[in-house]
C-alpha cells in the first residue's frame, strides 16, 4: 500500500512538473510562434497588410518586402555585437582577474566602477557618449559620433560588465592550488595561466561573451544617439520603422533574426557546448 502511494505521489509530482515545464515553454515560445505565423500570412484581395494569427494563407510574400535598409542594419548589428563581445572579453577577463586576485587599495570602488554601466540607464549612457564624442571632436578634430568606432565604443562600455561579472563569479570559486601545482611542476606563470586558469574560467568567458553579444545586439537607447546615416543598427531601424509602418514585413524580418539566432545557438552548442555556459556558477572539481 505504501509502495502504491509512493508511486502515485511520484506520478502526480511528475505530472505537475511536466505541466509546469510545458507552461514555461509555451510562455517563452508563444511570442516567437505568433511572429513567425504572422509573417507567413500573405496579402489577399481586400486585405493588403494583415496581422492574422494563425495565418489565413501561407505565403512568403512579406519576406520579399523586407526593406534593404533592415538587412544592412542587421549585418551591422551582427558585426557590432561580435566586436563588442570580443572587446568585452579582452577588457573584462583581465579586469576580473585584477578584481579577484589583487589587493589594490579601493578595490571595492573599482569593482563598483566596473558595474556602473549596468546601473546607469542606457539612454543616459548614449547621451553621455554623444557629448563626450563632441567634446573630443572639438579638441582633436576627430568626431566619433555617427561612426562605427563610436558605436563600438558605446557597446563595449555596456557589454564589458557582463564579462566581468561572469568571469568574476568563476574566479571567486577557483582553487588557486591548481595553479600552484602547475608552477611547482615547472610551468611558468604565463603557461600556468593559459594551460590551467583559462580553461577553467572559459565557461564564464563564453557566458559573458554571449551576454555581451545579446546586450549589444538588442540595444536601442545607446545606438539611437550614436548611429548615423549608414550606421544604423537593426533594433534602431525597427524602432523607427514602427513609428510609421506597421507592415507584416517587420514580422518577416523579425523571423529572420529568430532563425539566425537559433542557428547561432546551434553553432555555439556544436563548437562550445551550451552546458559549458551553465557552469558559470562554478566548475566541477574547483574550490
Amino acid at each position: 500500500m505504501k509502495f502504491v502511494t509512493y508511486r502515485l505521489q511520484k506520478a502526480i509530482g511528475r505530472f505537475f512538473f511536466g505541466l509546469y515545464c510545458s507552461i514555461s515553454y509555451i510562455f517563452l515560445l508563444s511570442p516567437m510562434v505568433v511572429v513567425i505565423g504572422t509573417s507567413l500570412n500573405g496579402p489577399t484581395e481586400n486585405v493588403e497588410a494583415s496581422f492574422t494569427f494563425p495565418p489565413d494563407s501561407f505565403s512568403l510574400y512579406w519576406y520579399t518586402q523586407i526593406p534593404e535598409g533592415q538587412i544592412d542594419a542587421l549585418l551591422l548589428s551582427f558585426v557590432l555585437a561580435t566586436v563588442a563581445s570580443l572587446c568585452g572579453c579582452l577588457l573584462g577577463v583581465p579586469a576580473a582577474l585584477g578584481l579577484v586576485r589583487s589587493n589594490v587599495p579601493g578595490k571595492a570602488l573599482i569593482s563598483a566602477i566596473f558595474r556602473a554601466p549596468l546601473q546607469i540607464p542606457a539612454i543616459v549612457t548614449g547621451i553621455a557618449f554623444l557629448q563626450l564624442f563632441y567634446w573630443i571632436g572639438d579638441l582633436t578634430g576627430f568626431y566619433w559620433q555617427g561612426s562605427i568606432i563610436g558605436l563600438a565604443l558605446g557597446h563595449i562600455f555596456i557589454a564589458t560588465p557582463y564579462v566581468v561579472g561572469t568571469v568574476t563569479a568563476i574566479l571567486q570559486r577557483f582553487d588557486t592550488r591548481l595553479e600552484e601545482a602547475a608552477v611547482i611542476h615547472g610551468a611558468s606563470p604565463r603557461r600556468a595561466f593559459f594551460r590551467v586558469t583559462l580553461p577553467v574560467i572559459m565557461p564564464g568567458v563564453y557566458a559573458g561573451a554571449l551576454y555581451a553579444f545579446m546586450v549589444s545586439f538588442s540595444d536601442v537607447p545607446v545606438a539611437i544617439f550614436l548611429s548615423s546615416p549608414g550606421f544604423v543598427t537593426y533594433p534602431v531601424e525597427i524602432f523607427f520603422a514602427l513609428e510609421n509602418d506597421f507592415e507584416p514585413s517587420l514580422m518577416a524580418s523579425a523571423t529572420l533574426v529568430i532563425i539566425i539566432c537559433l542557428l547561432l545557438l546551434l553553432l555555439v552548442q556544436k563548437v562550445i557546448g551550451l552546458d559549458a555556459l551553465l557552469k558559470v556558477g562554478g566548475s566541477r572539481g574547483v574550490g
Partner: peptide, 19 residues
C-alpha cells in the same frame, strides 16, 4: 542625401546632447 532617422523628440535630444 543622407537620412538621420528618428522621431523629432530623438532628433531634438541629439541637438541638446551635441550642445
Amino acid at each position: 542625401v543622407e537620412f538621420v532617422t528618428g522621431s523629432p523628440a530623438a532628433n531634438f535630444a541629439k541637438i541638446v546632447a551635441a550642445r
